[in-house]
Nucleic acid binder design. Structure first.
Lengths: 206, 206, 206, 206
DNA sequence: GACTAAGCGAGACGGTACGTCGCGTCTTAAA
DNA sequence: TTTAAGACGCGACGTACCGTCTCGCTTAGTC
């Protein structure tokens, strides 16, 4: 049995120490500059070499550190018989994670690296984007079956409509991510912006 | 008269050389790392000192360089009598700028700095986010007057629904920014995802 | 019986493998840098631990490796009835060993460590310098008895006159160690540099 | 005028600080390990980069540091009408420099690098070996003219006879470099080791 | 038409962190 | 019990850019 797989072996212990130190540093302040491999090494009581043995550079480390406990915190929307509520559950979990430390600031700091380094992008898509879309898919399916959503509703498009605006606020457009944001987004895309009287008779253009 | 204000003085000439070099380096490859102050100095035939005299650091320089010719390229949607077309014009100009060099890659590279440094964020909002919202406002107003949009349509929300998903694709979710994207986004938010027969009788919740 | 003393025990076999690997690496190229403990371990198929069990550090190992087969290769000058020839035999064995691989390059690489670390210096003197002087002593004694050398000839001084210049060439002054070098050195110290007519009547100053 | 050539410019000041720190560290203890570029930087209040800008590695720096004030300290033997005294003057200056700090220990530490790195070897020969031989040449010439030395006396050989044994003691054979050493060496090579009565009638073999 | 001071090129500098290398120690599983 | 395998703490390496700092030279604008 390899050492790395042993639950409480030295390898595992130092790995945890590194990830903890990384999260601490990311949470300490939003400054990307605070996350240095040397600082992680110092804080975790681990040698720099040990860090580089496991992660190619500090961005891979940071992504790992934030993803590992970001993933389980996603609310998995269960069937509550109400599509709107299920969508709000989904979108609120996005708002919640990105408005909490260290995840919001970490995302701000990491996003340039993720979108720039193909390997990081691949990992992020595989481990975050796709799982989240897979969580949303059954909600959409149930919504269509219930008659709450158009039969041709595209999961990918809905996903982008729900997450994109939150990302835009987090990164560029500024206003804080407040509690009501999720509800407004869900209502926005459910109802659309055409006035009801006109919407009734409109043929959907695609 | 100060030299800086003279149209073709030494100061102005070197400023242009610096901005040009910056754009060249950003366009050369998507790698952020290629943009170093020393590289800019070398390529523009200017001393590093001269760069630091004008910009606090390379991120301010980079933001300046890309904003300066990004701004005039925004399509200003004119009144064509059709709200949907006007919205598509707006959103297509976002898709277009972010899918072209060096603006897309530059945005990917800069977004972490913008969202992390308050001063950069302020500048970006003042000079990009708000002007774009100001462009969108008359479109929304005309749409409401024409009866194409609900009377309570929120410009800010529509803006975020149109730009957010594009940003999400550019940075994280991956799929390329294609030509049909703008149309799909506009139709998505106009119609909403409720089926027509139900949407007709629904009371909007806000 | 301890394993270390068993002629073909595991201990003895790995010791030989380590020494062989060390010599190979030293011979491979003159570069000292090629001799790393990790390289020795890899090449000998032995764990680093096993090396450190036997040698304090790589310099002790290296010195051991080169001394072990350097020692028996010393020509032990036998009584051939001619002092000059016996001295040439002695000095030529020094020239020969230091102009061959890996001994010359190894000496160049090791000399700083030997002269710097007291323990290594002690070992080198006990196992190389003194045995060689002990080889030279009977040659000098026979030379004095035969009337070929002054009665007060100092073995230590002759030894240093014969070996020193060779070492100087090997390490610093540069010219290659050629075959005639031994003869020139022996003649140089036998005759001295005073002209014969004067030397005859000179009283030796000491 | 280049800054580097300015006698008290920043460049020159930091260069001196670096060389001083290097000598201090070399003198502090004979340990080679004490001479680290980082230690030199720390002690001299200079950035590591500044050191690497001028010297390829710590060995070039060390060689420079010791050579610079070793060279002027060489006693240049003047014509005192007595060849033996002039030779003793020469050889004593070698004994003296190598028995003083930091030059002796530094030489012990550096000799492996000098003899191993062709570039260092070239510098050492050009700046130390050859100048010293050039100092010895006129002594030999005068000695021949005076009839104190054989007409075919080879400067190179005499030089090696005088310096080699000292080097051998410094590095390997052990006994300290004492004050009488120079005299013994000069007498040794002047008289040779053949007994006077035999030496008179001997034909020199070369 | 010379004088002078601001702005500039050039590039060395102190500094921080990088990612790498090899040392010598320590842990673990298998022989 | 000893070994091979190899992770680890450590310390230094040499590099890359950062942003600051002289230093003369250029170059306008003033006298």
């Amino acid at each position: 049995m390899k050492q790395t797989e042993k639950p409480n072996g030295r390898a595992e212990r130092s790995k945890q120490a590194i990830l903890d130190a990384t999260r601490d540093l990311l949470a300490a302040d939003g400054d990307v500059g605070s996350l240095t491999v040397e600082a992680v090494a110092a804080r975790s009581g681990v040698a720099k070499t040990t860090i580089y043995r496991r992660w190619r550079d500090k961005w891979e480390l940071a992504l790992d550190a934030v993803m590992i406990d970001m993933l389980p915190s996603f609310a998995n929307p269960v069937d509550v018989g109400d599509t709107r509520n299920e969508l709000i559950t989904f979108v609120d979990s996005v708002v919640k994670i990105w408005s909490s430390r260290p995840y919001g600031p970490a995302m701000q700091a990491l996003v340039s690296q993720i979108s720039t380094q193909p390997e990081l992008a691949r990992v992020y898509r595989e481990r975050v984007v796709e799982p989240r879309r897979d969580q949303l898919a059954p909600v959409i399916e149930r919504g269509i079956r219930r008659g709450d959503l158009r039969p041709d509703t595209d999961v990918r498009l809905v996903h982008e409509f729900l997450v994109g605006p939150i990302l835009y606020r987090l990164l560029l457009s500024g206003p804080p991510l407040d509690r009501k944001l999720g509800t407004r987004l869900v209502d926005g895309i459910l109802e659309g912006f055409k006035p009801p009287e006109k919407a009734a008779g409109t043929k959907r253009r695609r």
